[in-house]
């Protein structure tokens, strides 16, 4: 399943880029993420509890950042598996200056397997887009908070 989209994050490109590389920020923004533990260069083990209305499931997996080209682009790979299935997302994120901040465009491929793929086909794409949107909403909020703190510090 191909997914593309773009979101605007407040603040300059360099800072948006740095935020997106920060495991603490990623952990805070990824829906349901309960923690990222560094297991290698740009590679983290992830624990996640996904809750979406009645549906819930625990996932364990990995987050990996590669092809870093600061502050313009990098690849983000997220994979997780649990009893209800497995998810693997691999996307290129491209940052460009935009009015009011930085535009983050992603182009990705998401693979879903197991029960969620077999019975959730009707909703997988809608849900995936919603989760990505939540991620960027939180990222934007994090960026705003950061900017507010920075301004306060100025």
């Amino acid at each position: 399943m191909k997914l593309t989209g773009s979101y605007t994050v407040p603040g300059p490109r360099e800072r948006a880029y740095a935020l997106l590389q920060d495991p603490a920020v990623l952990a805070q923004c990824m829906p349901g993420c309960e923690g990222l533990d560094r297991i290698g260069e740009n590679e983290y083990a992830m624990r996640m509890k996904m809750t979406l209305a009645s549906i819930s499931g625990r996932f364990e997996g990995k987050v990996r950042i590669s092809d870093a080209n600061p502050p313009e682009s990098f690849r983000l790979m997220v994979e997780g598996s649990g009893k209800i299935g497995f998810v693997k997302g691999d996307g290129l994120l491209t940052l460009s200056p935009a009015h009011g901040g930085t535009s983050v465009r992603f182009e990705g491929d998401v693979q879903v397997g197991g029960t969620i793929a077999n019975v959730g086909q009707r909703l997988v794409e809608t849900t995936a887009r919603m989760l990505i949107k939540r991620f960027f909403d939180k990222l934007a909020a994090a960026a705003s908070v950061l900017r507010a703190t920075e301004s306060a510090a100025d």
Partner: peptide
Amino acid sequence: YDDTGQLLTGELTD
């Protein structure tokens, strides 16, 4: 089936 072998029509709901 998708390209990875997932049966997307996995129940009578689909």
